[in-house]
Simulated scan of single mutants.
Amino acid sequence: MTSSLISLLPQLASAAAHTHALGFAYDGLDGDRVRLRVPWREDLVGDPETGVLSGGLVTTLLDHVGGLAVWVALDRFEPIATLDLRVDYMRAAEPRRDLIAEARCYRLTRSIAFVRAWAFEDSPENPVAAAQGAYMVDSNGGRVLGSNLKDQRGDAA
């Protein structure tokens, strides 16, 4: 993996407005597995009586770490988009605990990347949630379905 992508991962993990607001932080790379952490904060709690982080936060974390795993597999940053994301919630997160997410891109085609991810407190063997996702890879130099292409006359398509 190129050192330029490795040096970008912390910024890609938390520089977007929503990931910064949620407190996502790059937590490391182990081979092809990328890891993020979100520190517990009271404003991220879904149920004030239990102190458990919101399920929407868990989904967002899994989706974002999945995207990072795609960039790791590509060994470069390029536009991607989530096509499909299935999240299976296995148990409630532990109250007042940071949440960690880990993801790995296990199959990469010319246009689709397939990812598995887990959210947990201590170990992926005891997940709060597991996800399977498919991400569109921009293999066409930015000319993807739905982009504003022009026909040969220069008119908008």
Rank of each mutant, 00 (worst) to 15 (best):
R153P: 12
L9E: 04
L5I: 11
L36I: 07
V70I: 05
V58N: 04
A130M: 13
R116H: 12
G23Y: 02
T19Q: 10
E102F: 00
L9K: 08
A73W: 03
R143T: 07
Y135T: 01
M1G: 11
S123H: 09
R76P: 07
A92R: 13
A25V: 11
V70C: 11
S3G: 02
N148T: 01
A103V: 05
A103I: 03
W71T: 01
A156T: 08
V52Q: 04
T50R: 09
T19P: 08
A101P: 00
L29W: 05
L36P: 13
E121P: 00
A101G: 02
G31F: 14
G146N: 05
L8Y: 02
A119D: 14
Y89K: 06
M90H: 13
V115Q: 02
A17H: 00
E94T: 07
I6K: 06
D122V: 13
R153H: 11
V137G: 04
L29N: 03
R76A: 09
Y26I: 08
E49G: 03
L61T: 03
A69S: 07
N126E: 15
S7K: 08
R97A: 07
G31M: 06
L74R: 06
R110I: 10
G28L: 04
M1T: 08
A25L: 12
A157G: 05
L57Q: 00
R96S: 14
Y26A: 07
D27R: 13
I6A: 14
L99Q: 03
I80E: 02
G154Y: 06
V72C: 02
D47C: 12
L85F: 13
T19H: 14
D75C: 09
T109R: 12
R110K: 15
G142W: 09
A13F: 05
A17M: 10
G56R: 02
A16G: 06
G55H: 03
A92I: 11
T2I: 04
D30T: 12
Q11M: 09
T50P: 09
S14M: 12
S147I: 02
V128K: 01
I100E: 01
T60K: 07
Q11L: 14
G31Y: 15
T19W: 07
A93F: 05
G23D: 09
G154W: 13
T109Y: 03
L61M: 15
L108K: 12
G133N: 02
E102W: 01
R33T: 03
D47K: 13
F120S: 06
G23F: 02
L149G: 10
S111Q: 10
G55M: 00
L61Q: 11
H64P: 05
Y89W: 15
Y26T: 08
R91T: 01
G56A: 12
A101S: 13
M90L: 14
G56P: 04
A130D: 07
